[in-house]
């Protein structure tokens, strides 16, 4: 069955509500400004209205209520809407949810999911374009899911709602909504915490997550056809946990690494991967690693300025050519 990323999300939400009466939706937008995708929520909203809470514009309260309900035995997903709005909720997400299990000496856990439509979406400007995976990666106790494909949108959301025992930030991306994948009924999900080799290659590993996965795949195509370079694409799928092994094994095969990440350059996800490669994989490398990331400036509104900053297929190709010495 072919599904889109947006369909994968809606399907996961629907099936989770159906499977477990403890699942609860705090807010029910999920699809942002995409009016077509919003229709996908209709069946769920009409069938499970008693487990869908109206959500005022109160991110701090909504997040905290989600954490509280989770500690008390429910399995809520809080719709943060645009990923940047999680900052209004930071006190609860970072300083409450993440600490609950540790501070209680393991007595209590908070299996709550925060759903964020994050990333540079085109015209969002400085206040609606944040990618928070790196910032949140600094918070032990949080799980950070960064699906880059329709099947992972489905599997990871279902896992967060039905199986996870910890607070989870689910980073969705509105530019991924139309991406499609084959969903094999009854198939097992690749375990959470395991990266996926999306495409095998010999010359270079492109390490990607979320929106950069499809751009890395397109770059790999172009590298093969135009430059005769065989690129392997590693889809991290989750930032916390982070699958160091798959990254290192891939680089062991290729000897080169380009990390494509939509976070800012400094202290970003790419910086962390580069550090791991420096510590654990220096002997594997035939060339210095390269980060293809967003420069350290806020995201401007103007299309020409925004275009200067985003991690495109072209910039990934350029990054690969650099590490190939071309």
């Amino acid at each position: 069955m072919k599904i889109t990323f947006a369909e994968g999300l809606a399907k996961a939400l629907y099936e989770s509500l159906a499977a477990d009466p403890r699942v609860l939706l705090i807010g029910s937008n999920f699809m942002g400004l995409n009016t077509a995708a919003k229709q996908l929520m209709n069946p769920l909203v009409s069938e499970f209205s008693n487990r869908i809470m109206a959500a005022p514009v109160s991110e701090l309260g909504l997040a905290g209520a989600g954490i509280g309900a989770a500690m008390a035995g429910r399995r809520p997903v809080v719709d943060i809407n645009t990923g940047s709005f999680i900052f209004q909720a930071f006190a609860q997400v970072v300083n409450e949810a993440a600490n609950v299990h540790y501070m209680s000496g393991g007595q209590t856990s908070a299996p709550v999911t925060f759903y964020c439509l994050a990333g540079i979406r085109g015209g969002g400007g400085a206040q609606h374009s944040h990618r928070t995976q790196a910032m949140l990666g600094q918070v032990p106790g949080l799980q950070i899911l960064t699906p880059g494909s329709a099947d992972d949108a489905y599997y990871l959301m279902k896992w967060a709602l039905l199986e996870s025992r910890n607070p989870t930030v689910f980073l969705s991306h509105s530019l991924l909504f139309g991406e499609t994948a084959e969903l094999v009924p009854g198939a097992q999900m690749l375990p959470v915490g395991q990266a996926r080799i999306r495409r095998e290659g010999r010359d270079v590993s492109i390490i990607a997550s979320s929106i950069t996965v499809m751009r890395a795949m397109a770059a790999a195509d172009e590298l093969e056809h135009k430059h005769g370079i065989s690129a392997e694409v590693v889809d991290l799928r989750t930032i916390a946990p982070l699958d160091e092994n798959t990254v290192l094994q891939s680089v062991a095969r290729t000897g080169r690494a380009v990390i494509a990440d939509e976070c800012h350059r400094r202290f970003g996800v790419a910086a962390e991967i580069a550090a791991i490669l420096a510590e654990e994989g220096l002997a594997l490398l035939k060339a210095p690693v390269r980060r293809v990331t967003v420069p350290d400036v806020p995201i401007p509104y103007s299309p020409t300025l925004e275009a200067e900053l985003i991690v495109t297929k072209e910039r990934i190709v350029t990054g690969v050519l650099r590490v190939m010495g071309r």
Partner: peptide, 26 residues
């Protein structure tokens, strides 16, 4: 006014006493 940095969401004109415009509710 912001050379294209703000767009509609954050229109502001310092000379008119409009220091910065937030598009975050509240």
């Amino acid at each position: 006014y912001a050379g294209g940095k703000s767009g509609t969401l954050h229109l502001a004109v310092r000379d008119l006493g409009i220091l910065s415009t937030s598009a975050l509710v509240g």
